[in-house]
Amino acid sequence: MIPQTFAYRKAHTIDEALALLREHGDEAKVLAGGHSLIPLMKLRLSTPELLVDIGGIRELTEIRERDGRLELGALVTHRTIEFSELLRQKCPVLPEAAAQIGDPQVRNKGTIGGSLAHADPAADYPAVVLALDAEIEATGPDGRRTIPARDFFQGLFTTALRPGELLTRVRVPVMPPRSGAAYLKFPNPASRYAVVGVAAFVKLAPDDTCAEVRIGITGAAAAAFRATEAEKRLVGKTIDERTLAASLEDMVDPDDLLSDLAASAEYRAHLCHVLARRALRQAFERARG
């Protein structure tokens, strides 16, 4: 449990961090909260020659509202999200999800940017940012670009980030009127990672039918994903038990899901159905106010 020898540099600005990444290439790894990278290094599953510590970049620790969106710096911790009054008022599903991550020690140090960039298939935030239709800002040698959350998670620990890029900010819409969202998960009792986690977003039309529905799922497959077919079936309908049963039937194919010591693919498919039904009911009730 001892890492390979490595060098350490602390960056105080985004430009400084990018310069170090450009200079050292694949030999460098970015250190944010460290709750994903350090265990991998101790097991020597990751053996960087240089750690670029971005924890001192203060501009990435802010949460602010701008142009109808909430902007979270990559270094905002889970605990900060959990207790943010701005987020509780404008997008309460984010604090709801943050409160379910790990334990207090993890929430005090772990960051939203580190979690999303690591793209653990059982992490909580990916389902939520998918359901919220969030945007992820990446900053690299060619400047800044925006990646829709639906395009960000590409496979096991694989994202749309390019070599030399930093995930710098996450932007989520302020919850519009007559909308609601919820996040529920079946946690692994040891790690608190999601065996399956489901986030649901619902926006209602004046007649209480669904104008918009988004369902994000984590833990079930090699990468978080949207249940797009189920979403389409629910648009234009009122959420009740009969509608949910029909719309969520066969929402996932067990052949596409993970099977391991925590759960079989078939059980994960069952959890997807159960948690989606509960999360959608909760989101619907919140949208109705």
Rank of each mutant, 00 (worst) to 15 (best):
I217M: 04
G180S: 04
A17K: 03
R214Q: 09
D255E: 10
A7T: 09
A122V: 08
A11Y: 01
V174T: 14
A227R: 03
A160H: 00
E137R: 15
T209K: 10
Q4D: 06
P48L: 08
V252G: 01
R169N: 13
L248D: 00
Q4Y: 03
P39Y: 15
H118M: 05
G55Q: 10
T111W: 02
P173I: 08
E23M: 00
S264H: 04
V195L: 04
I215Y: 03
H35F: 10
A19P: 01
A17H: 04
L43I: 06
L60E: 01
L40Y: 14
A265K: 08
V52G: 12
A119L: 12
R178S: 09
P3L: 12
A221D: 08
H78A: 12
G219L: 04
A190G: 00
H35D: 10
T5D: 08
R286M: 08
D26H: 12
G114M: 08
A17F: 13
Q100A: 07
M175Q: 15
V170E: 07
G216S: 06
K90I: 04
A7M: 06
T139M: 08
L130W: 10
D124M: 01
E27D: 15
R88F: 09
E96G: 14
Q105R: 14
E266F: 04
G164C: 12
E231T: 07
G34Y: 10
T47R: 15
R44M: 05
L257R: 04
R107Y: 06
S264R: 05
A190H: 04
T159A: 13
G143L: 14
